[in-house]
């Protein structure tokens, strides 16, 4: 029985797609991620409190799970594994700016909350009531082999029947998330979860 990609989504600063289909997002004064949130009619005010890294992960998971009738049923068998290169450096720097000067030393609790990258996995887990394994890995560079290897290990746990796996990066001008819902399956009609599939689907997302 192999691993297959059941559904996938891609978002950067200008495009969004799910299963390769572009998501229409009206152009306006709002930032792209906020415009996407409104375009999908998501009702989750906590979104506005998130840092960009969590917004990316959250929205990618919304695109994966929207329309799923059982999405808010608590599930123990879905793991969440995220990867990136810059950890939570963007929020780390924003928080550091609030404690840089002795006379203006006002550490921000709401920024501090996001000074760990794995908060994005928690945001997704809380929203979707996913109680399986969660982990966040920081790599030197995008490495589809690492994703395939780690997801394979997650499935070694008999409790895991699906893995939400994402490359989610937010630092300076580099913002993107590529997320896949991976499951066990043995039909030949599904997209195999492999290095080749990951590279092909990621490039398809980037090209809009």
């Amino acid at each position: 029985m192999g691993l297959v990609i059941r559904k996938y989504s891609y978002i950067n600063d200008r495009v969004a797609s799910v299963d390769g289909r572009a998501i229409p997002v009206p152009a306006g004064e709002e930032k792209f991620l906020t415009a996407l949130y409104r375009a999908r009619r998501v009702d989750y005010p906590r979104f506005f409190k998130m840092d960009a890294l969590s917004k990316l992960g959250f929205l990618a998971s919304e695109l994966i799970f929207e329309g799923d009738a059982s999405r808010f049923t608590p599930r123990d068998h879905v793991a969440i594994l995220c990867f990136n290169r810059s950890s939570s450096l963007e929020s780390d720097a924003a928080y550091q700016a609030t404690i840089r000067h002795g006379e203006e030393y006002f550490p921000s609790p709401s920024l501090f909350v996001y000074t760990l990258p794995n908060i994005v996995t928690a945001e997704i887990a809380i929203r979707n009531r996913l109680h399986g394994e969660t982990a966040f890995y920081v790599l030197e560079r995008f490495d589809p082999r690492a994703l395939v290897g780690r997801v394979g290990e997650a499935f070694q746990d008999a409790a895991t029947r699906a893995v939400l796996v994402a490359w989610v990066e937010s630092f300076r001008d580099s913002r993107e998330v590529f997320m896949m819902l991976v499951e066990k399956n043995d039909t030949i009609f599904d997209l195999p979860f492999s290095v080749e599939s990951i590279v092909e689907l990621l490039n398809r997302g980037r090209n809009g």
């Binding site: 409190k49 006002f106 550490p107 921000s108 609790p109 709401s110």
Partner: peptide, 11 residues
């Protein structure tokens, strides 16, 4: 967390 942020705002 909002409560902590309000404490910072007051100061």
């Amino acid at each position: 967390i909002d409560a902590l942020e309000l404490i910072v705002l007051m100061e």
